[in-house]
């Protein structure tokens, strides 16, 4: 999971605008453990994983918002959540994900 942070550094060096999504809490049988990360750039390219592929789509579109606004946010997904990509979390678990922009300088 820490390898995503090394990739984030590379992406920043390449001048890409990027956000990081991090699994901060899970309940039930969530597919990826706390600390799992997804790195997203302004074009929607991504690396890493925060679920088994169930909610990545929704996280990516939120992450692009975060890149544009600079405001971090917490997302929550569960089995019945309509914002989850197509089917939500098929495993029946719930996850909370923190999404933040990564800045070369400044930012809190």
């Amino acid at each position: 999971m820490h390898d995503v942070l090394f990739a984030a550094n590379d992406w920043l060096q390449q001048g890409r605008k990027v956000a990081l999504a991090t699994v901060i809490e899970t309940w039930g049988s969530a597919p990826q453990p706390v600390g799992s990360r997804l790195l997203i750039d302004r074009d929607g390219d991504f690396l890493g994983s925060v679920s088994g592929g169930c909610v990545e789509g929704a996280v990516i579109s939120e992450a692009i918002d975060v890149i544009d606004s600079g405001n971090c946010r917490v997302l929550e997904f569960g089995v019945a959540d309509e914002t989850a990509w197509e089917v939500g979390l098929a495993c029946g678990g719930r996850i909370r994900i923190f999404v933040e922009a990564l800045d070369k300088a400044g930012q809190p």
Binding site: H2, L5, L12
Partner: peptide
């Protein structure tokens, strides 16, 4: 996350 924080994390990992 700012660059300084990221660099500190990477330094700790290395």
């Amino acid at each position: 996350m700012n660059s300084e924080t990221l660099q500190r994390l990477l330094q700790a990992q290395r």
